[in-house]
Amino acid sequence: DGSETGLGIDEEVKIAKARKPVAKLDETRLLTPAGIPKLRRIAKTRVKFRGKGHEFSDVARLLNTYQLWLDDLYPRAKFADGLAIIEKLGHSKRMQMMRKQWIDEGKPRENTEQEADE
């Protein structure tokens, strides 16, 4: 009954030190500027290929680009682990909407639309 009448001043306040939350690789992180938007920028500006006869070196360079990008985005995970996490995220409704949108942005605009805009 003492606890009811008192204001709780006498009770010792216990401080449980909260664990520092571990950074997660989730949709939010993937959609920050360092995530997919950066990858799209890279794709447009920095990916260069040498073409015929250099298939393996071209792909190796491409893979390196992904690895460095992922290392910047989420340094904690190894490359393969990070890829697995991202692939799984891609199944969500929201990500699928976004992916569709990104692709549509890249599509050549259809004639009818252009005419309507003009």
Binding site: A43, V47, H91, W102
Partner: peptide, 27 residues
């Protein structure tokens, strides 16, 4: 496969993002 991939990525940079995921049938 690599040859075609390189060609495709050059034609459509949006593939760079899609390469992270399993493809959606619609696209």
């Amino acid at each position: 496969i690599f040859k075609r991939l390189v060609k495709k990525v050059q034609e459509r940079p949006e593939l760079m993002v899609e390469m992270l995921f399993s493809k959606i049938p619609a696209t």
